[in-house]
């Protein structure tokens, strides 16, 4: 995601969304494409089908609790999710998000967002605009150097870009 991306729809979930719901163990040995089709199916069987490029996933407290499996972040990216907005994140998942190129935005007012709301996000300024409800919420900004890594697609592509001869800054 960039500092001023387009508008996306909100898919709203509750507190303690766990990694096993994001990336179910039954499908962990398959490809990311196959795993992504089952993302969050235990909470909402239609989510993986309905979510589109640029949409947002909204959570309550402790989003991403559970496993270290970073596929939990990868599948959201695979499905086109632009950012996860939650009241708080599980620490391990938060680190994985940044490393896998998915912006985790901590927002105390995430609970005001309703399913289907049209949102835009400025991750550098730390602001979420809810166009449907005509509201605006502050979120914890992501430092520019980390956002650059997120925009590169995560730590690996970011490192590869930096290590590529002639492009190192």
């Amino acid at each position: 995601m960039s500092a001023t991306p387009g508008t996306g729809r909100a898919f709203v979930f509750g507190d303690n969304v766990d990694t096993d719901a994001l990336a179910p163990g039954l499908y962990m040995k398959g490809s990311i494409e196959a795993l992504a089709r089952h993302c969050l199916e235990s909470f909402d069987p239609a989510f993986a089908r309905d979510v589109a490029q640029g949409d947002f996933v909204i959570g309550g407290e402790n989003f991403g609790m559970g496993s270290s499996r970073e596929q939990a972040a990868m599948v959201l990216r695979q499905l086109g999710v632009a950012a996860v907005i939650a009241r708080s994140f599980a620490g391990l998942f938060f680190r994985n998000c940044l490393n896998l190129g998915l912006a985790p935005l901590e927002c105390a007012e995430a609970g005001r967002i309703r399913p289907g709301d049209a949102l835009t996000v400025d991750a550098i300024e730390g602001r979420i605009t809810n166009r449907t409800q005509g509201q605006s919420y502050p979120c914890v900004p992501i430092p520019a150097h980390l956002l650059e890594m997120v925009n590169d697609g995560g730590l690996l592509p970011h490192l590869a870009k930096r290590l590529k001869p002639g492009t190192a800054s």
């Binding site: 270290s68 970073e70 391990l92 680190r95 994985n96 490393n99 896998l100 995560g154 730590l155």
Partner: peptide, 11 residues
Amino acid sequence: MFGIGATEMCG
């Protein structure tokens, strides 16, 4: 000792 994802582990 704490858990990390595979990408961090690569680092």
